[in-house]
C-alpha cells in the first residue's frame, strides 16, 4: 500500500490515539477514528491525504473508510485553512433570527465567500449545520468556541480580538 507521499504520526499523536483505542474492544478500533482525526488535525488545522492514510494504517482501516468519515463531518478540513476557523450556523432557528444578515456582514468584513480563506491566511469562513444552540440563535462556532445571540457588532468584536 505504499503511497508516494508519506506521513508518520508523531509519538504524541500515537500516544493520544492509543488512549482512545483503549476505550473500545480490540476489534473495534474503528471507533477511535473520529478522535484520531481530531488529534492529527491539531497539527496544521487540516488533514492531508498522507495524514489520512497514516491514520488508516495505524487503525488498520481501509483508506476509503477514513476518507468517508473525514469528508462526512464538517469539523475536518481537507484543505489548508487559516489560523482561525469561523463557522456560522445557517439552519432554521438562526436563519429566523438574522443569520443571513450576519453572514453577509462577515463575508463583507473578511472579503471571502463561504468555504474560503482570507488571503492573509488568518480566517477560514465556513457554514455550520445546527450547532444545537437554537435558543441563542443566531450562533457561531469560532475556533471550537460557541458564541450566541450574535449581531454584526458582536461578531466584529470577537473577530477583531483574534490575532
Amino acid at each position: 500500500m505504499a503511497e508516494t507521499e508519506l506521513y508518520k504520526l508523531t509519538e504524541t499523536m500515537c500516544g493520544e490515539i492509543d488512549q482512545w483505542i483503549a476505550k473500545f474492544p480490540p476489534e473495534r478500533k474503528q471507533s477511535a477514528l473520529l478522535a484520531s482525526l481530531h488529534i492529527v488535525q491539531k497539527e496544521t488545522g487540516w488533514l492531508s491525504t498522507a495524514q489520512l492514510n497514516a491514520v488508516a494504517d495505524y487503525l488498520g482501516l481501509a483508506y476509503v473508510t477514513v476518507y468517508e468519515v473525514a469528508t462526512f463531518y464538517s469539523m475536518y478540513d481537507l484543505q489548508p485553512v487559516g489560523r482561525h476557523k469561523v463557522h456560522l450556523c445557517n439552519n432554521i432557528s438562526c436563519m429566523l433570527n438574522g443569520s443571513e444578515k450576519l453572514s453577509e456582514h462577515v463575508k463583507a468584513k473578511l472579503g471571502v465567500e463561504f468555504g474560503a480563506t482570507t488571503t492573509d491566511g488568518k480566517f477560514t469562513l465556513k457554514h455550520a449545520e445546527c450547532l444545537a444552540a437554537c435558543a441563542g440563535a443566531p450562533a457561531a462556532q469560532i475556533d471550537g468556541v460557541h458564541y450566541e445571540n450574535l449581531t454584526p457588532e458582536k461578531i466584529d468584536k470577537i473577530l477583531d480580538n483574534l490575532d
Binding site: 483508506y63 476509503v64 469528508t71
Partner: peptide, 20 residues
C-alpha cells in the same frame, strides 16, 4: 473483502468514490 469504493461527502454532495 476489499473496501475500494466508499460514500464520501454527505447529503446532497454525497458521491460514490474510490479513495482519491
Amino acid at each position: 473483502g476489499m473496501r475500494e469504493l466508499g460514500t464520501v461527502w454527505r447529503g446532497e454532495h454525497m458521491e460514490i468514490k474510490t479513495f482519491v
